[in-house]
Nucleic acid binder design. Sequence first.
DNA 1: CCAAAAGTGTTCCCGGTACACCCATGC
DNA 2: GCATGGGTGTACCGGGAACACTTTTGG
Lengths: 236, 236
Amino acid sequence: MPNIEYTVFGSSIVNDVRVTVDVVAFAIEQDSLEVLLIKRKYEPFRNQWALPGGFLASSDQSLEEAAARELSEETNVSDIYLEQLYSFGDIDRDPRGRTVTIAYLALLRADEVELQAATDASGVAWFPVHSLPDLAFDHGRILDYAISRLRYKIEYSPCVFSLLPESFTLRSLQNAYEIILGKEIDNRNFRKKFLGTGILIDQDELTRGGPHRPAKLYKFSMQEFSRLADRPVFTF
Amino acid sequence: MPNIEYTVFGSSIVNDVRVTVDVVAFAIEQDSLEVLLIKRKYEPFRNQWALPGGFLASSDQSLEEAAARELSEETNVSDIYLEQLYSFGDIDRDPRGRTVTIAYLALLRADEVELQAATDASGVAWFPVHSLPDLAFDHGRILDYAISRLRYKIEYSPCVFSLLPESFTLRSLQNAYEIILGKEIDNRNFRKKFLGTGILIDQDELTRGGPHRPAKLYKFSMQEFSRLADRPVFTF
DNA sequence: CCAAAAGTGTTCCCGGTACACCCATGC
DNA sequence: GCATGGGTGTACCGGGAACACTTTTGG
């Protein structure tokens, strides 16, 4: 691998680092948490599944904009929940040479997404996080990190609502928690707690057409949420 | 600013991105939280204060190793608390050209640190976070981010103990919390809570030489801490 | 009328918070 | 003996956790 010398930065500096942005995009489909993967069209890891991502472009005003761009190359969505996760830069994570990637977490509403493979991918698909193919690069590790972050955030931030449609039932909200946390939740306490916070607004509307008793629809109120305080372990 | 074409990465890619690592190193000195700054020897921002940092080197096995290296160029410390904070990559954050920096948080024990300016710095010093000079680049923003992260972490992780000497009094522990959180804490509740966790081990030893009643010395037990559970807002 | 999911209340317990006084030492 | 910081206990309150039955609809 060649080292390239130049003097842009005042003194002569050896540059052999690339910067990429990768996106871990989650959605909830039926009864599982799914992640968006693309099938690589080019080497390395040709024909393997990987996280959507790519090189930081000079047209990107910010890292977040780059992540949004990468995501919109594979889907029709824009204006979604996007949060920087972590940067990975171990020396051997890309066989082509030193590459630092900034990983982003994206939360999508399954019903609003249409997939479309970008030019550097031969396929795009959702995979349930519990039955995944082998991923390219260190993307398996990045995905694990994203899952633990999501589990963590769902307990103190209102990020679940980015995974649900605008209007949702308490049951579908509880499902989201159960799927992500991987455990059952007492539904009486769950309802009491959420309704008690005041962050759910009753839409005075019921689900229709189901085989059973219709459920009330709610909407999330960011305004009400921002009134709440969080309470960590060592609070004084 | 030139674009440099090369073919290391299979297809021809335009590369004009640099990667740096910056370190926000905190220590507690007397009654304030202090941050380590260096005085820049070269342009841009020559003679301005900045966070210690520099380009990712090809000898760095990982980003964390790079951060540790940058820090050890200014101090005699190694083997310290180091945690990746966030990556900053806005297009205009460095006047020389596109630069992505991965910021790290370091927590040091004031009594173990000796300062020594690195070759790219004409000075190195501790500054209280509440009376700072103007910082180079977007380092002011990075520092703000680090402070909010520290405030946050101190409430649910045992990171304070990285700022204190091995043996410390309950008062000095409480001081650390009060300095970082910027508020007074009821000392009865503080002691009850910390002693109740079982993570503090009584050293059967007292401070000596002070003008007043001697205080017990304690040590932090990581083992005991790992038994505890955290309790976020939306816990079920 | 049956199956399936929606919806609801009470009790117990623990941890958080507020609050005031005695103790040990150096000078 | 006094000034200064070290050290302790109690009562109240609110939120979390456990727990079982009724209601509404479609078929």
